[in-house]
Design a binder for these strands. Sequence first.
DNA 1: CTGAAAGCGCTAACAG
DNA 2: CTGTTAGCGCTTTCAG
Lengths: 336, 336
Amino acid sequence: MLEPVTLAQVAREAGVSPSTVSRILNGTANVAPDKRVRVEAVIARLNFRPNPQAQALAGGRSLSIGVVTPSLHSTFYGEALTGIEAALNDTPYHPIVISGQWRTEREQEALNVLLARRVDAVILLGGILDDEVLRPLAQRVPMIAVGREVQGLSDSCIVMDNALGMRLIAGHLLDLGHREFAYISGAERQSDAVERKNAFLGCLQDAGLSIHPDLIQVGQYLEDGGQQAAQRLLDTGRPFTALVCANDQMALGARLTLYRAGLRVPDDVSLTGFDDVVTSRLMTPPLTTVRQAIYDIGVSAAQEALKLLDGQPAQRHVFTPELVIRESTAPPRSRP
Amino acid sequence: MLEPVTLAQVAREAGVSPSTVSRILNGTANVAPDKRVRVEAVIARLNFRPNPQAQALAGGRSLSIGVVTPSLHSTFYGEALTGIEAALNDTPYHPIVISGQWRTEREQEALNVLLARRVDAVILLGGILDDEVLRPLAQRVPMIAVGREVQGLSDSCIVMDNALGMRLIAGHLLDLGHREFAYISGAERQSDAVERKNAFLGCLQDAGLSIHPDLIQVGQYLEDGGQQAAQRLLDTGRPFTALVCANDQMALGARLTLYRAGLRVPDDVSLTGFDDVVTSRLMTPPLTTVRQAIYDIGVSAAQEALKLLDGQPAQRHVFTPELVIRESTAPPRSRP
DNA sequence: CTGAAAGCGCTAACAG
DNA sequence: CTGTTAGCGCTTTCAG
């Protein structure tokens, strides 16, 4: 299985000391042009790549950044991961991704594994861990949180303006003439779910409208949850002309329930999501939603992590969402 | 930032030598019960976790398994990744995932990065690299290929019976009475795309049917490709009552084209996919497809990789697909 | 059964 | 500008 080339071999072949090779590799110091050329030639010829484990051990850095994501097969987090991967691509760092499966213990364990692997920084995508466990963690390792607020660490948070997003949605629906709403929320333990819901309720209030508590159901941000929540909504027997979901995934689930119930979208009920996941434009009909530049958010998260590693302070980002009107919304039908 | 505990500290506190601690950690040799107990207590108290970089360097293994996936935000590969992660969970190994973005150079580079990181094995999910580049690679590092055939390495391949899957689909459609088909294929360079297409064509032939070449379009296995291919199909003006897609993602894209064209599914045209990606049951209408136990496939891939690392030979797996009849297929309408 | 000693491949002072 | 010298934290002979 072919022994890999080592730095020592390169040094020998090039007739220089290992340190010189190391310096060239890392740009740690200036090296005489002729030696540099010679060494680089040998590196190329031998196709030498430094052993990261050795670099990690000697350098005291693992050159890896841990990423905790709720799920590996989520269209939403997947895009963020792609952004993170892309942003790290031209750096010596690489991501190590572990999923938390939406379970607190798994998330905690993911963090433990990452720390045991001595990652140099960690990026948290969403997640349900308490602020109380995150704050001490941030003392031990540079940390960036995405899509969630961590009290006391707001500079390390990359969030979106959930309230604005929801106001955009509500405004659109109100403009269309809707007055009877139903709402499917994310879980209460997630700060963005709470923000979205409160913003929505606020809009209704401002419009002088109210919503019966039964017409608010929680769907855990997942497709199945949305599907079931929509069913519960229908079961109340209370009328509504617009169903707003706190994310696209739940809207997708809700769409199926509506389909099964023989309700047409948008003719019988308008449907909205939140996030603009890649598949939302492919729904039947394409979903009206609010766009989070989730790929870009991933990129920013990686960049902030890099800044932290560089000793610079992290900078809070607030992304501005954008209304994407597609075909799942229309004026309400006049009642028969 | 809190210095991590080292093995040497543990040894000192427990009053034994570092080697003894190492032996206990790895079960490399028997250790007197009293020392073992003492050491384990110290490990627990100090919450010691060995530094993987150091283990890697000293042990000559990185304890990591490289995974190359075409995409990080694919419902299909995402499930496989979840399976791999789960299977590796209770082993000392952990996955390092890099995406190839469906581009040969990126895939090649992903492999290079993985080799540079000295992964102990690599798992290839699908991918478009030539057999010619994979064969020599397998000499350098234990390798498992998922969902694709590599000539000369069939024992290292985990595949599904694509022909059977397509026969299931074709049989279902034929039974419903369909005689006029259109087909959206994956790219020719992917062996499974070819297998599926050939199987489909074979079924038609066996049924004494033929298909006009214009009614076969390629969609690259992606949503957008499916959407565009479907449009091209419609543009031919040739009639078809069933549209079979070589995977679910393209079926999703095709669904949108059909919707835009005002064609109802399944009333005007029956639509089928392949894979049974998680979102397919949520389509409107839910998609008839063929199920690949993709999560399980991921698990098997990881297990085979582990076997390879254990010095055992890999064993070829052929997964059997299963027809999932949902609501996107129905008998063809009698022509107006 | 157990300790001492020698590295794994690389980086980082420290002298020149 | 560059070579020498120590390690980084752990595993693994090699003696005992």
